[in-house]
Design a protein around this nucleic acid. Structure first.
Lengths: 344, 344
DNA sequence: TAGGTCATGAGGCACGTACCTCAAGACGCG
DNA sequence: CGCGTCTTGAGGTACGTGCCTCATGACCTA
């Protein structure tokens, strides 16, 4: 109740540590020219006073805004477009928050291109890079080097463990697959269920499939899995895969990749729309249409807006040297039926 | 690309409007002593330059932090406890963000108590009040008066249209009910489905029931609705209601209120746990237990953390005189199965 | 005309941090 | 000894806004 004690400032820290303001500043901002012994004293004073740098003052004082660069794959994936949208919404919203957001499209599935883009970032203007990582050692090394140059790196959507990335922002794809199985298992009576993936060499798709098969086998025995077929996140090829599946009796379909326009076409032209239970991924124009018509029953979504917001919050923390990622709520898996669609 | 033009400041506005800094300040902060004609000039300059007050500087300059008071009902409802938790988490997290969060418990279902609490808020230390509103004209008037005294009011969880509340933060309860029906309709073959409500006189419970019945009747004909029974958000009474329902053949249950511990007990003692499909509300210890054991299939959640975050974001906007609620993402309805439970 | 109120301008201090310069002292080394 | 390098201190300005005081007119009214 009696919150009379004001928050500690750098002045208090200097006094407590018995050093000058300049030295505290050097420690706080990682500038050179401080003996480790002295730095230790400052660190102790900071802990003793529970000092936390004032965000408002800090952002005000730094001449330039906080620079965050997003490196997003340039394929025409519906989901990537939603990510870009989310970034732009936040960018326009954050004019007053001393954030300078910068988006670059990088050639998709091209580790060398991503590494080059990372290397081209200038630490003078970029405090934090948010990247959709590709599994490759070239990328891993580029992240490590960016980190050494003073650019904090955060992975988005797909992670890259073993690199110097400071955080990962994204959903648990294994859980997403389990959830799909849990729903389809309850929706349909025992029978064949088809799986369509984008590409089985993508880490997230692989994880979804694993989770799906694990739950279906352990909890809904009697359901037979057909596939997975690969649709390569492409409408035409997904349509072909779905048509192939639908040529035989089928109780349900789980499309864990993109290409949902094709899936819906296959469902409609086979006359099975609304009869076969369907779970798909990502809220897009295509899946919204499918939900509305009844062709798709449930959409599993990873909430790009939430991911971007989380990435920016982390970027801010990292730039100010307070790595408090644990405080951040994890990205939750969104489930949408026709009845709880957000207006977006 | 060439973002060379820096953001406009109050100085720029003053120059553009041909007035002094002091006058711009008077307009911006609603201080008296400005002819409406002059205020108009300033407003035009603000629009012409797309000026937005710098949040960091603004928070820094005001001696006191932004004061937000939460007025939360004091009943032992699981959900209210989660709300309190969420507020406290945010409060400790926001030490560095110039926020002073203050929570008061108000006697539940007591309009007079809520009105008194609103009247007792001091505009000197409280910029924004966030209240779980009770439907009553006494409350409506108290909100209007708080607004006149310079305290912005935001309603949380349950709204109060017709009052001077600036925003409502919460989910669409009608959609929540529709979603429950959409799930249960797919889960079970046509048969009797029981409804348990907290109290039918609560606006949100009423809306959930309406949405549920509408969808079940229009899309899943053949399902018969039994009830609603009232459980008064109480474990014992909910258990009794559920036991009564389970004494006859039943395909599913929708509990749109609290008291889920009682519901689970009734399911278990009747031997129907895992056989009857169950949809309940709010992620709590009770519903998590039910999900884990299989007694509950799906939990519909309104995400208290998200609601608190949204309320605070709105409070900040309102306090700075920029009512940009449209930029805010709506509170989404969360759906949880055993398989996509957040760690929380 | 004197006294009053009102609208506006001018200027300054404060908030807490970032970042800069200059100087002083410590220490090592040839 | 004199030189260079490293560490530290002292002090300043700047960021953009909030809030305060004081002065200067303009205008109204008795």
């Amino acid at each position: 109740m009696d919150e009379t004690r004001r928050r500690a400032t750098v002045h208090d820290v200097a006094r407590e540590a018995g050093v000058s303001l300049a030295t505290v500043d050097r420690v706080l901002n990682g500038r050179p020219g401080v003996r480790s012994e002295t730095a230790e004293k400052v660190a102790e004073a900071i802990k003793a006073l529970d000092f936390r740098r004032d965000l408002s003052a800090s952002l005000l004082a730094r001449a330039r805004d906080l620079g965050v660069s997003f490196l997003i794959p340039d394929n025409r994936n519906e989901f990537m477009l939603r990510l870009i949208d989310a970034i732009e919404r936040r960018a326009s919203q954050s004019k007053g928050e001393r954030l300078r957001i910068d988006t670059q499209r990088v050639h998709a599935f091209d580790p060398a291109a991503l590494a080059t883009a990372l290397g081209a970032l200038d630490p003078k203007s970029c405090d934090c890079a948010v990247v959709v990582a590709t599994e490759d050692d070239v990328v891993r090394r580029a992240i490590d080097q960016a980190h050494r140059r003073g650019i904090a790196v955060v992975t988005l959507v797909s992670d890259l463990p073993g690199s110097a990335r400071r955080h990962f922002v994204g959903i648990d794809n294994h859980a997403a697959g389990r959830t799909a199985a849990s729903l389809l298992g309850r929706f349909v009576r025992p029978g064949p269920i088809g799986i369509i993936a984008g590409s089985l060499s993508l880490a997230d798709h692989h994880q979804r499939r694993e989770g799906f098969e694990a739950v279906l086998k352990s909890e809904f025995a009697g359901h037979e899995i057909v596939g997975p077929f690969e649709g390569f996140d492409d409408d035409a090829r997904t349509e072909a895969a779905a048509a192939e599946l639908l040529s035989r009796p089928l109780a349900g379909i789980y499309n864990l990749g993109a290409g949902n326009d094709g899936l819906i076409r296959a469902l409609e032209s086979s006359g099975q729309a609304g009869k076969v239970r369907v779970v798909a991924h990502e809220l897009t124009a295509a899946t919204r249409k499918g939900l509305a018509s009844g062709a798709i029953d449930v959409v599993i979504d990873q909430n790009p807006d939430g991911e971007i917001a989380a990435a920016l919050a982390i970027a801010r923390s990292l730039a100010l040297g307070q790595d408090d990622g644990r405080l951040l709520a994890p990205i939750e898996i969104g489930l949408y039926l026709r009845d709880n669609l957000p207006k977006g």
